[in-house]
């Protein structure tokens, strides 16, 4: 058997939250490509249907269920539907999240609701899904939880209070999962760098990756092999850890001063 055979996910059921678009969609397609059956969830049904069609076009199986991860009863229903369709869950990817209202506001301007929604979306949602799915994953004989954090889970920025607190909370939530359910369940993190999803305004906002050490932004498809790796038997001893896919950003920094070289980079000279 070659080491590459361990990447096969045939017979596994993977739940991906936030699978309607962006990174969640790319990861769902990659997991399906590796052989897993998919449960796709988010709030916007039309986007889920599109992802489901893409999975099926590639020869995979997909069930979509709309759900709001901030609402625990909605999450419990989603997990129960997944079980009644497939009978088991082996992989959970907690990817739903992102910017919420109030992100970027300075502390004294943040409303209670903005703080709550931000934490619910980027931290509590992963708790709801893990709490509902873990008994099923254990029943299936163990499996994998993959939580999507961010560079902001490890570092902060001025006037970024809500998102950075939630994503850092997700990092330690993952470590607690890792300590609690080892060796049956491995819980790890993906920390994407800057992924604009082909959105020109976002790319421009991030200066097209000029300040990222590699000089470019990420492509959604690059998350695919990483999520498959973490869902696969290749990472059986990896637990409570993050893989940061960010073109070198966190090795120095994403800002110009973050990696100020002692000699100019080729581009500057």
């Amino acid at each position: 058997m070659s080491v590459l055979d361990k990447l096969k996910l045939n017979g596994k059921v993977a739940v991906v939250t936030g699978a309607g678009r962006g990174l969640g969609r790319a990861m769902a397609l990659a997991l399906a490509g590796a052989g897993a059956d998919l449960v796709l969830t988010a709030r916007t049904e039309a986007q889920l249907m599109e992802t489901a069609d893409l999975v099926r076009d590639g020869g995979g199986a997909a069930l979509w269920i709309s759900c709001d991860v901030t609402d625990s009863s909605s999450v419990n229903t989603m997990i129960e539907s997944a079980i009644s369709e497939y009978g088991h869950i082996d992989i959970l990817v907690n990817n739903a999240g992102g910017a919420t209202a109030g992100m970027g506001k300075t502390l004294t301007d943040i409303a209670d609701d903005e703080w709550r929604v931000g934490l619910d979306t980027n931290l509590t949602g992963a708790m709801h899904c893990s709490r509902a799915a873990i008994p099923h994953i254990l029943e299936a004989g163990g499996g994998k939880i993959i939580n999507v954090t961010s560079g902001f889970g490890f570092r902060a920025a001025r006037d970024n209070f809500i998102y950075t607190s939630a994503k850092a909370g997700l990092v330690n939530f993952t470590r607690a999962l890792a300590m609690t359910y080892a060796p049956d369940i491995q819980a790890n993190l993906i920390a994407p760098g800057l992924f604009p999803h082909g959105n020109a305004a976002m790319s421009e906002f991030w200066r097209n990756g000029k300040y990222t050490p590699m000089g470019r932004l990420g492509e959604d498809e690059e998350l695919g092999p990483l999520v498959v790796l973490l869902a696969s038997g290749l990472t059986s001893y990896m637990n409570g850890q993050a893989i940061v896919l960010d073109g070198g950003g966190l090795a120095g920094g994403h800002a110009p001063t973050g990696f100020a070289p002692l000699v100019p980079l080729p581009e500057d000279s």
């Binding site: 470590r175 890792a178 300590m179 080892a182 060796p183 760098g193 050490p213 590699m214 990420g218 492509e219 690059e222 990483l226 990472t235 001893y237 990896m238 637990n239 409570g240 850890q241 893989i243 940061v244 896919l245 960010d246 073109g247 070198g248 966190l250 090795a251 120095g252």
Partner: peptide, 13 residues
């Protein structure tokens, strides 16, 4: 290809 400057820990938690 987009991963550089990282330490990937494989230590079972």
């Amino acid at each position: 290809a987009y991963l550089t400057g990282q330490v990937v820990w494989v230590e079972g938690g």
